[in-house]
């Protein structure tokens, strides 16, 4: 499977690039980040933290940058991301693992939901093109898609949490939600999730809608569609087997590629709602200049997006016989 091998190759390569960027960026800055951090945490940082930092940035052994780089890669492979500065001495990986389920739950599920919803609307809008309703969604979608995520989140927060008090203001759970996975716990989780979910859905659905609509319109002028109609197939069959299958393929690819962007937006949503996922911790680490945490979170977000892309590639493989043949 040449296709899969190539995709796997790109996956590994991109991950490596992400890791390397992570390594290089702090070193590009004039002055060293450690002293900046030390200045910020002046006096509040105990000596063991300073040591940890120095180790993390390879400032202790003054090895050559190349040696530093390889020990950094080695640490990555072993899953050793060092210790967080702001939450010292918690290992970075623990913080990441704490945030990961929330992000996967919130961002993962809503992104898929939004893709499905947007594609369905896009299918409608493209297929019924020319009708008032189908055409009116386009400007609406473009507007929604241009809204800053966090700003829309703020508005929702203000109206529904602050003014109307229908939903909690922040967090993922009540302070005392009851036993994990009990009914009360789930209820609390759900109430906290409503506004963030709504934010992500509303602001990202437009993009998928436009993508799908364009694909449907392209497919609609394909010869095989005219032929399907000439055969006297029912509209339902045409839409399901001819339009949808062919229009979804490029949509999937677009989905994979836009994922990085969408995840970025979702991070902001977490920040607005103080939703304790990776995005929130990323924000915390940026404001606290907690470089080790920041870098680990970036690495994990990249990993998640890359894995999702790999999944999309797999799906394409299943859906498109031309890829199966190694034609594309």
């Amino acid at each position: 499977m040449l296709y899969l091998l190539r995709k796997l190759g790109i996956f590994v390569f991109t991950l490596w690039v992400a890791a390397t960027l992570n390594f290089i960026l702090p070193r590009l800055v004039p002055g060293d980040p450690v002293s900046v951090m030390l200045a910020k945490y002046q006096g509040r940082l105990d000596p063991s933290a300073v040591d940890a930092l120095k180790i993390a940035y390879g400032l202790n052994d003054l090895g050559s940058p190349v040696a530093q780089y390889f020990s950094y890669l080695g640490n990555l492979v072993r899953g050793d991301f060092g210790r967080s500065i702001s939450l010292f001495p918690t290992p970075v990986i623990d913080v990441v693992l704490r945030g990961l389920p929330y992000t996967l739950g919130l961002v993962g599920i809503t992104t898929i939901l939004s893709f499905l919803l947007g594609s369905a609307l896009g299918l409608y809008s493209g297929w019924r093109r020319g009708r008032a309703g189908a055409d009116a969604v386009v400007p609406a979608a473009l507007f929604l898609n241009s809204m800053p995520y966090f700003w829309f989140g703020l508005l929702l927060l203000y109206v529904f949490a602050f003014q109307l008090k229908w939903f909690p203001l922040s967090g993922a759970l009540d302070p005392f939600p009851g036993d994990a996975f009990s009914v009360g716990w789930w209820g609390s989780l759900a109430r906290h999730a409503v506004l963030p979910v709504l934010t992500i859905l509303v602001t990202s659905v437009g993009g998928w809608l436009i993508t799908m609509r364009n694909n449907v319109i392209s497919v609609a002028s394909e010869d095989y569609l005219a032929f399907a109609r000439a055969k006297g197939l029912s509209e339902r069959r045409i839409v399901n087997r001819y339009v949808l299958r062919n229009a979804l393929l490029p949509s999937f690819t677009a989905f994979g590629m836009s994922l990085g962007f969408v995840v970025g937006g979702s991070i902001l949503t977490e920040i607005v709602f103080s939703y304790p996922g990776l995005g929130y911790y990323l924000y915390q680490s940026v404001t606290n200049l907690d470089y080790p945490l920041m870098q680990a979170i970036f690495f994990f977000i990249a990993l998640a997006v890359l894995l999702a892309n790999l999944l999309v590639d797999l799906l394409n493989l299943i859906l498109d016989p031309r890829i199966r043949e190694g034609r594309v």
Binding site: M257, V263, F298
Partner: peptide, 18 residues
């Protein structure tokens, strides 16, 4: 392809943080 799949905003955040 690499730049496409790298999550943009987190990268910018990390880059700009420095």
């Amino acid at each position: 392809n690499v730049f496409l799949v790298l999550p943009g905003l987190p990268l910018i955040i990390v880059a700009a943080a420095f």
